[in-house]
C-alpha cells in the first residue's frame, strides 16, 4: 500500500517570536530534511491546512513565519512554546542557488515574501556567490520582519530596506522596491530570486529587463491556493503547472505567458 500523503506529523513548538501585529515566527522541532524554497502544510484543528514556506532551519528545528489572515493561520498564531504543531511536508521545489555561483545574486523580497527568501539568502552568504544583494520592501515600519538579523545581514551582503510609507522612527529609504531597483548598478548576467505579491513581481521583472537581465535568469516563488500540495486537487494550477509540486519557485520565462495574462 502506498504511503498516505495526508498523514500529519507532530512537532513541538520550541520558540515563538512576535514579528509584528498578527505575525509570529515559530521554531518547530523536526528532523525532516528540507531545501530552501520548499514549504510545509501546517494544520489547525477544526480549521484545515495552510501552505507555509520554510523561512529557515536550525539544529533540529524548522522556522515558519505565519501571518493571521484566515481561520487556519489565526489558530496557528495562537500556539505558544511547548504546544504541538501538526504538519506535512516538505513540499515543492527549491531555489537553484548554484546558478548564481561565481555571479551576482539579487534577491527581491516584498512583505511576507521575505520568509520565502530568507533561508536561501542565509545560504547564499556562505556560498561562492560573487556579489550578493538583497532588496526588501515592506509596506510600513510596523510590518518589518526579522529585525534582529538586519545587522548581521548588512555585514554579509548589500542588504537594503525600503518602506512604502514613512515613519518617524525610520531613517532609511522610503519608496517602492522598483525605485530602489532602478538605481541599482547590476551586472547583466546577474541571477535574480524574488518573492512578493504578484504586482510587485511583474513590476520588478519589467525593471530588471530594462536593465538587460534575461527572464531565464529570474526566478519567482509564487503564491497560489494550494489545498492538497501533491498535484491532485487542481486549485493551484497556473497554465500547465501545479504551483504546489512544479513550483513554488519558477523560472520566469516558463511562466510568463500564464502569470502575466489576466485570470489564468
Amino acid at each position: 500500500m502506498v504511503e498516505n500523503p495526508y498523514f500529519l506529523k507532530e512537532g513541538r513548538v520550541l520558540k515563538v517570536v512576535k514579528e509584528c501585529e498578527g505575525v509570529f515566527t515559530f521554531h518547530i522541532a523536526t528532523e525532516e530534511p528540507a531545501e530552501p524554497g520548499q514549504y510545509n502544510m501546517l494544520y489547525a484543528f477544526g480549521a484545515g491546512e495552510a501552505p507555509i514556506t520554510i523561512a529557515s532551519v536550525g539544529e533540529g528545528y524548522v522556522v515558519h513565519t505565519v501571518r493571521a489572515v484566515g481561520n487556519v493561520t489565526r489558530s496557528i498564531d495562537s500556539l505558544r512554546e511547548g504546544d504541538y504543531l501538526y504538519y506535512r511536508g516538505p513540499y515543492g521545489n527549491r531555489w537553484e542557488l548554484e546558478r548564481a555561483f561565481g555571479k551576482t545574486l539579487l534577491i527581491l523580497s516584498g512583505g511576507l515574501g521575505l520568509a520565502a527568501t530568507r533561508w536561501v539568502f542565509e545560504r547564499a552568504m556562505e556560498s561562492p556567490v560573487k556579489r550578493l544583494i538583497h532588496l526588501y520592501g515592506s509596506k510600513d515600519y510596523e510590518s518589518l520582519l526579522y529585525k534582529e538579523f538586519y545587522e548581521k545581514w548588512a555585514k554579509g551582503a548589500e542588504f537594503h530596506i525600503t518602506l512604502d510609507r514613512p515613519h518617524p522612527e525610520w531613517k532609511g529609504r522610503v519608496g517602492l522596491i522598483t525605485e530602489l531597483l532602478k538605481e541599482l548598478e547590476l551586472e547583466k548576467d546577474a541571477v535574480v530570486f524574488m518573492c512578493g505579491p504578484d504586482p510587485m513581481v511583474k513590476a520588478c521583472v519589467k525593471t530588471l529587463e530594462e536593465k538587460g537581465i534575461r527572464a531565464e535568469n529570474i526566478y519567482a516563488s509564487l503564491e497560489r491556493h494550494m489545498k492538497c500540495s501533491v498535484g491532485a486537487c487542481g486549485h493551484c494550477m497556473i497554465g500547465p503547472y501545479f504551483v504546489c509540486k512544479d513550483g513554488p519557485v519558477f523560472r520566469y520565462d516558463l511562466i510568463r505567458e500564464y502569470f502575466e495574462r489576466k485570470e489564468v
Binding site: A47, G48, C228, H235
Partner: peptide, 21 residues
Amino acid sequence: FCFDLLERASLDVSERVRVWD
C-alpha cells in the same frame, strides 16, 4: 478530478473530508 478538502469539526473530533470541486 479536482477536489477540495473540508474540515467538519465538533468540539474534540474533526473530520477531514474530500469533496468534488
